[in-house]
């Protein structure tokens, strides 16, 4: 399926099939995801939207028995080819998870974790990265005086923004958000949504959500999945106002899922 014409595609997925053992989780998925925009994956539980998200940074590699056919290219490079270094790929494709998962370390050490993994150790350089990342994640003003305090002392919403800052600290091109607000209260959710809006000028964001209103509020494109297949992919406004497929219409009008 084609990306909306006005932007350049960063991620190209071509005839992707994914199996967990004998279970066919993704069926012949093809799509182009434009850069510097927010693309939302929606669909009922078990429809494959999270699975597709996790193929983009190869987190599915960790699940034994996963088999993939087809091709995914990011910036023109096949991410499943032999010479790809998974660690470098994941540095370029950051991820925020459903549950805020900060390390039981200080706020500073959480953000500095990624850069340290990749060999940055200079105190000044790390200070700078920590500040920029926390500012980008709209958390700096709240924590700048408590950087040495445990990340676990933050509220759930703050923890999730810390996780975003941590992901941004390694300078990714793509940010994957796997139902990143589903464990948060409405106000924290709103903050993360606003943050995503700000970040899309600099990052390509792909978010999985089972909250249709969130997809409608935040995203530029929306992809609707059902049973491992892409049913419809369109600009968000179009998909929600004039869905082409009957199943999309049923889903967004709340008749199932």
């Amino acid at each position: 399926m084609q990306a909306p014409a006005h932007t350049r595609a960063l991620i190209e997925i071509d005839k992707l099939n994914l199996y967990y053992g004998t279970f066919h989780a993704l069926k012949n998925v093809s799509m182009e995801i434009p850069e510097k925009a927010i693309t939302a994956f929606i669909g009922p539980s078990g429809c494959g939207k999270s699975t597709l998200l996790r193929t983009l940074n190869r987190m599915n590699d960790m699940i034994a028995g996963t088999r993939i056919e087809g091709k995914i290219a990011i910036g023109g490079a096949d991410i499943y080819s032999k010479e790809v270094d998974v660690e470098t790929l994941r540095k370029k494709v950051g991820m925020v998870f459903q549950q805020p998962n900060p390390f039981p370390k200080s706020i500073y050490d959480n953000v500095a974790y990624g850069p340290r993994l990749h060999g940055i150790s200079g105190r000044k350089q790390l200070d700078e990265i920590v500040e920029t990342s926390l500012r980008s994640a709209a958390l700096w003003e709240e924590v700048k005086d408590y950087l040495k305090r445990s990340a676990l002392s933050l509220s759930g919403g703050q923890q999730q923004r810390l996780c975003i800052a941590r992901a941004l600290a390694v300078e990714p091109d793509v940010l994957l958000m796997d139902e990143a607000t589903s464990a948060l209260d409405p106000i924290s959710t709103l903050k993360i949504e606003e943050l995503a809006q700000e970040l899309k000028d600099r990052y390509t964001i792909v978010m999985v959500t089972h909250n249709m209103h969130q997809a409608a509020r935040v995203s530029n494109q929306t992809v609707f999945f059902l049973n491992g297949e892409v049913v419809e992919y369109a600009e968000t406004e179009k998909l929600f106002s004039t869905p082409r497929d009957q199943r999309t219409e049923d889903y967004i009008s709340g008749r199932f899922g």
Binding site: M59, E87, F103, P104, Y113, G114, L117, R166, V170
Partner: peptide, 27 residues
């Protein structure tokens, strides 16, 4: 150690060794 922490480290581009040394053993 919660799997989520391990995944967080992998998702940041950590190798298995780095994840064991910097997250799993300290926790």
């Amino acid at each position: 150690v919660p799997q989520e922490m391990k995944h967080a480290s992998f998702a940041l581009g950590g190798t298995h060794l780095q994840t064991i040394r910097r997250v799993l053993i300290p926790v």
